[in-house]
Design a protein around this nucleic acid. Structure first.
Lengths: 156, 156
DNA sequence: CTCTGTGCAAACACTTTGCAGCTAA
DNA sequence: TTAGCTGCAAAGTGTTTGCACAGAG
């Protein structure tokens, strides 16, 4: 699993914010939760539960895949993680950190991250904002990636 | 499955466009494909394969769920349908018609459609447009819906 | 006539659940 | 101490695949 260049302090900040969030929600702070969250934000891609599991195992050698699944789901519910859009199987997660957007190829399912400044601060429609608590705003594109377009042209 | 107020001619146009698309991609025009596509665009929500199946059965009483699944997948590949973002199980599909956006509750998974003019014509970043064929642009929000916020407050 | 699409059934992959022991607070 | 968490194993659920027949082009 590729890793990000997080500096130490940034990581610490995120972790303590996470612990506070857990406490707020009445969740206990367990080594497993810390490890899963840590692995998630350390990953630069959008790992599956399995991938997070493999990573976390390095520290907690006897954590179970179920716990990773359950924890990921929990993180998702408290807004500490998100399921990547347009997902097929297996589900892919995102630490929800820096602003970036996704492009997904409808043919091969590949997800390409990109960052486009103007999308960083989209305004939430008033109506929506009044009614719901918006935790995450994403712009999401779908279409054919370069590889699949190439393939297409060869076939047709 | 709730239905849209499509007028006849609009439906016809969509269907013939669909047939042309199929031909372009070298796909045969079968009653099953027509029926699935028809059911999909007639639905105002984001039906699951199962829901489409139930609908289609009214006309093609012995179509199989597998065919519906397979067809939905095919439509997805040719850009005639899309999988709704942030999907868990079961997958939900969208005919990709009118511009609208989605809000998804991270707690209960409910998907709320909304329409906000300014989001209708988002510009695709040049870099992306050069490299990929963007077929669909979506703004997608996640957070807590009114119901789940209410619940939350009662619990904590 | 040919080759793709369909229906059926079995196989899969991932996710969820139940329970007993464990652990953070 | 005690609610909540974890690990294990088993059960689900939705999706995919292989094959033979049927039907579109």
């Amino acid at each position: 699993m590729p890793e990000k260049n997080h500096n130490e302090s940034e990581l610490e900040v995120k972790l303590s914010e996470f612990e506070i969030l857990c406490k707020t929600k009445g969740l206990k702070i367990t080594p497993q939760r810390i490890a899963v969250y840590r692995a998630l934000i350390a990953s630069s891609c959008h790992p599956t539960a399995e991938e997070v599991y493999q990573q976390v195992r390095r520290d907690l050698s006897n954590i179970s895949l179920d716990t990773v699944n359950r924890t990921l789901h929990t993180l998702t519910e408290i807004g500490a993680a998100f399921v990547v859009e347009g997902t097929g199987q297996p589900r892919r997660y995102d630490g929800g950190g820096e602003g970036h957007q996704h492009f997904r190829c409808i043919k091969c399912g590949r997800i390409v991250d990109f960052h486009y400044e103007p999308f960083d601060n989209i305004t939430v429609p008033e109506l929506l904002d009044r009614q719901f608590a918006v935790l995450r705003k994403t712009v999401y594109f779908e279409g054919l990636c370069d590889v699949c377009m190439g393939t297409k042209q060869l076939i047709n």
